[in-house]
Write a protein that binds this DNA or RNA. Structure first.
Lengths: 136, 136
DNA sequence: TCCGGAAATTAGACAAAGTCCAGATTGGTG
DNA sequence: CACCAATCTGGACTTTGTCTAATTTCCGGA
């Protein structure tokens, strides 16, 4: 199944998001690439031809997608947040030199021995980030 | 052993850092508390009495400590970086509501099944962050 | 003690990411 | 067509962090 703009509308609806023009473009940018993009990058992609979508809308929309569980937030770089269209269980590999971010399938990764949570608390997520760099 | 200002000078020297007035104060802020502090918080602590240390120096010094391996950087909050005086192997527990950050000893935590690294790459570090929140 | 230079510190201008708001646009419904 | 709610917009603003040129501090040697 390909990520056409038409399919985006259905995807948005199925997540209880009103599919507007701008939202479809932003979803398309993320899902057709299947890459980790920052808000800046999304804005650049969406506005390649001529400026069509404002900064405020890009930020609002990404936040909305996040709340609705359409994308995930990845915090690896102190200067900007990345948005990840892959919401399945997976971890991240981060090249510190280049800023390149890629996925690690969580299927065969096991994490054991974590201490019990404080009472009344629930886990919202576990982020595992492997930071790598080119050997000196 | 307590983290007196006098001991700080030795700690800095042992890490090949020229122990100046300001550096001792900043190290003292971090180590006497054994807490995760942001640059802002460090600045506030150091300048409680009267303004003594400039913003530029706080940032320069924290970066220097980082390079010299005296502290570690923790990236969990998209809006600010935390500095961690504990450089031993450990992970982090992050309360998303409150922003409270605490340590998880790495001693009994096991991570297995990570894929091999791309050739020519070395691991710089593995960050494991457990995000929790109060049950609804 | 005094001098000179290197290291460190400083204030403040600047940059980048993200937030906020009040007004304009849009789209669906009767 | 008129109306209302939802959405979008430009632009001002905030916050975190960087940069730079000028000053201060520190130390060794004459």
């Amino acid at each position: 199944m390909h990520y056409t703009r038409d399919n985006m509308a259905g995807l948005l609806r199925s997540h209880d998001i009103n599919p507007t023009h701008q939202r479809i473009e932003i979803a398309h940018a993320l899902f057709s690439r299947q890459e980790h993009l920052s808000a800046d990058q999304v804005m650049a992609i969406v506005n390649t031809r001529h400026s069509e979508t404002s900064k405020a809308t890009v930020y609002n929309t990404l936040k909305l997608f996040l709340e609705k569980g359409l994308v995930r937030e990845v915090i690896v770089d102190p200067s900007k947040v990345f948005f990840d269209p892959n919401t399945g269980p997976h971890h991240h590999l981060y090249e510190v030199d280049t800023g390149k971010l890629s996925d690690i399938d969580a299927a065969h990764v096991q994490i054991s021995g974590l201490p019990p949570l404080p009472p009344g608390m629930v886990t919202e997520g576990i982020d595992l980030i492997v930071r790598i760099r080119r050997k000196a």
